[in-house]
Amino acid sequence: MSRSALEFHGVSVAYRDELVVEGVDASVPSASLCAIVGPNGAGKSTLIKAALGLVPLASGSVKVLGGSITAVRRDVGYVPQRESVDWEFPVSALEVALMGSYGRLGLFRRPGRAERAHAMDSLEQVGLAAFADRQISQLSGGQQQRVFLARALMQRAQLYLMDEPFSGVDALTEGAILRVLGELRQRGCTIVAVHHDLSTVRERFDHVLLLNKRLVAAGPVAATFTSQALQRAYGGRLAVMVDAAPGNAVTSAGH
């Protein structure tokens, strides 16, 4: 198997008659925590969907865990943006976590006792075991986000693709999510997350893709996440002093 968990080769994606991702060549090393960063409309979510095979490619190819997505789908976990979810749907937190096992179960087969135990474990990991029977809309935004993390954990994947896992969550949830992501990486999993908060990229991630339709820069955070690269990604609209004072100088830009 290759050393890269995820490779993009000249990937372009079009919606209707407009290119939203153009000729991206990049790779994400195994067992890394990678952030995809860029302004609004930069194609960050689209790039993740392209990796999952959820949008057709206009050109190029994607290698996931060394193969095509259809072959390794079971080893890829996905946490979509909050908008894709029907919050009024009648499911409990435990049932949402159980959905992580659906990919492995065939027709007519329902999740059994083993899956339920595992789903409870996953909820336990994100600190929500006590809320297993709550309907999903009765949880707070941060708790909902953690339930989705539990659903991804349920998949026992090697690669996790997350679309803004930290959007709209409080500090407590942020800490819980980060702890889980850290544990996953220790086990050799790769995490790729769309991320909006530039001030926290350095402390949370070790790899970064800077995107603005085209790839601006990619590589280890220390070497790649520089003010010049950010200027290029955000088109100079951003006064950045990342190098001077990491972690506090940059305020949110892409919201």
Binding site: L54, R73, R74, P80, Q81, V91, M99, Y102, F148
Partner: peptide, 23 residues
């Protein structure tokens, strides 16, 4: 409905995630 219960539930709740599972 018995055959596709999981699939119906997963796609109705969160279509994007269901698609990522290969449904």
């Amino acid at each position: 409905m018995l055959a596709l219960f999981k699939e119906l539930r997963a796609t109705s709740f969160d279509a994007a995630h269901a698609a990522s599972l290969g449904i």
